[in-house]
Amino acid sequence: MREVNMFVSYCQKDAVYAENIDLYFKDKNIVIHRDIRDISPFKSIREYMQTIRDMDYAILIITDNYLKSFNCMYEVLEVMKERNYEHKIFPVIVETSIYSDSKIISYIKYWEVKYKEFKNEFTQIDIVNAGNLIENLKRTQNICSSMGEFLSKVADMNNSNITEVNVAIENKLIEQGLLNEKVTTNNTMKENRDVFASLNIPRVNTNSEPTDLEKNKFMTTSFENINKVLKELCNQVEIENSNIKIEIEPVDNRTIIYEFYRSGQQITALKLFLGNGLSGRDKTIGLSCDKYSFGSNNSFNGIISSKVQDGELVLYFTMGFSLSKMATSIEEVVSEIWKNYIQPYLSR
C-alpha cells in the first residue's frame, strides 16, 4: 500500500500537540506534512497552505490560538472547498468550549471585529496600492461567514479525548482504507501469509536457542521502542501539565537523557543507555538516576536484559530492587520505569 500523506494544521504556539502526533506516526506508513519541514527558505507560505486539499487526510489541532489565527483559518477555508470535507479531516479538540453555542458565537464576533478593523484601515489607502490586501480582506470576511458552519460541524463530530487522539486517528485511517491494520504479537510484526507452509519447506532452527546476534538485535530494537513510548508519555505529560517541561537529549544512538522540570526547577533526571552492563557479550539496557554519573555508563539504578521464555526472547530486570523481575513487553517495561523512577517525583 502506498504511503499516506497527512497534513497537520496547527498554530505554532501549540506545536507540542503536533509533535505528539508526529512522533506517534513516525515509523508508520504515513508522511506527516508540517510547515517546519515542508516550507523551505523563500518558498510561498500561501502555496504550502493550499496543499492541504491535495492530502489524503488532514489533522486540525483546534485550540483557542488556532481559531484566532489568520493562517490557520485560511487552511480551514481551503479544506472547506472540498465537498463533504468532514470525511477528510480529523479535528483534535483542545478548546472543548466550542461545544457550546455561546462560545461559537464569541469566535464569530472575534472575526467580525477583525474584519471591521481591517476594513477601516483598508479604506484609508488608495485602492491602487492595495495589492494582495484586497484578497486578505475577502478571506477575513470568508472566515467570518464560515466560522459558524465549521465549528458547528466539528462540534457535531464524534471527537476523541485528547489523551487518546493518536490511536483514534490511526483507527480512522484504517477505517477509511488509508492504512492497513497491523497484527502484532510480543512487539514483532507477523506476516499474514506463512511462506514456509505454502512452499512446504522445513523451518530453519525452529527449536534452537536465539543466537548472540539475535539477542543483541532484540535488545537494540527494544531500546528504541522503550524510548519511543517514553517520549510519547513525556509529550502527553507536557500537554496535560503546563508547568512541567521535559528536555530529552539524545547523547548518541545508545544513550538518551531525560530531564524533568516543574516551573523551571529540575525535579529528576533519567538516563537510559544500551551497552554491556553485566560485563558479558549480551547487550543490556542500563538505567541511571544519579545525575553525577551521567558522564559514564558504569553507574546503574537498574539493568534490563533478555532471556528466552517459551521459545521467545523477552525482557526482564536483572537489577533494580523496586522493579518486578519479569516484563514480557515494551509497555510493561516502560510502565515499571515510569512508576518507579519518574512518577514519584512528578507527583510531589
Rank of each mutant, 00 (worst) to 15 (best):
Y107R: 00
M326Y: 11
E170A: 08
E332Y: 03
V113L: 08
L230E: 02
I127A: 12
I127N: 13
H87S: 13
S145L: 15
Q266S: 11
T268P: 01
T96V: 02
R83K: 15
I257C: 07
M73S: 09
I93W: 03
K228I: 08
K307D: 06
K182V: 12
Y261W: 04
T221A: 15
S102R: 03
E224W: 12
L230N: 06
G320V: 14
Y74K: 03
Y74I: 03
V334I: 01
N227P: 10
E19R: 12
K138A: 12
L179W: 01
S102Q: 07
D290P: 02
F260M: 05
S69A: 09
E209K: 14
M55E: 06
N166M: 10
V8G: 04
Q50I: 11
E149R: 12
D290F: 07
Y345C: 04
V195L: 12
M6G: 01
F70R: 10
S288N: 08
Y24W: 06
W111S: 02
V167D: 11
P41G: 05
F273I: 02
V314D: 00
V165M: 05
I226E: 00
I285V: 07
K103H: 07
N253M: 07
N301Y: 11
S222W: 01
K26V: 08
D27M: 04
Y341D: 04
V154G: 02
N120S: 14
P210E: 13
S40Y: 14
I39L: 13
K283I: 03
K81E: 13
M49T: 05
M326T: 12
Q266N: 10
N180S: 08
E191G: 09
K28W: 01
I30M: 02
V4Q: 01
I61K: 02
M157E: 08
Q12M: 15
R193T: 05
K138N: 12
S40D: 11
R203Q: 13
K28E: 15
Y107S: 00
S146I: 02
D194S: 10
T140A: 08
I127D: 05
I337D: 00
D194A: 01
F122C: 01
R46W: 06
Y292W: 06
S9W: 04
N225Q: 14
V31F: 09
E86D: 15
Q265C: 05
N5H: 11
K307R: 10
K190V: 11
M1D: 10
K190W: 04
K217P: 02
D22Q: 11
E86L: 10
S329K: 10
V79N: 03
Y57M: 13
Q236G: 03
T220A: 14
T220M: 07
V237Y: 09
S9Y: 06
S145A: 15
L173G: 03
L346G: 05
V314Q: 03
K109L: 08
A15G: 06
E332R: 00
N207L: 14
L179P: 00
N120C: 03
G311C: 04
S106W: 07
I143R: 00
T284N: 07
T255P: 00
A58T: 13
Q141W: 09
L272I: 12
R254W: 11
G302Y: 05
N29S: 14
S322Q: 14
D35F: 06
D22L: 08
K88Y: 08
L199M: 11
I21K: 00
N216H: 07
K283Y: 04
A327S: 05
R83A: 11
S198L: 12
S97W: 00
T185Q: 13
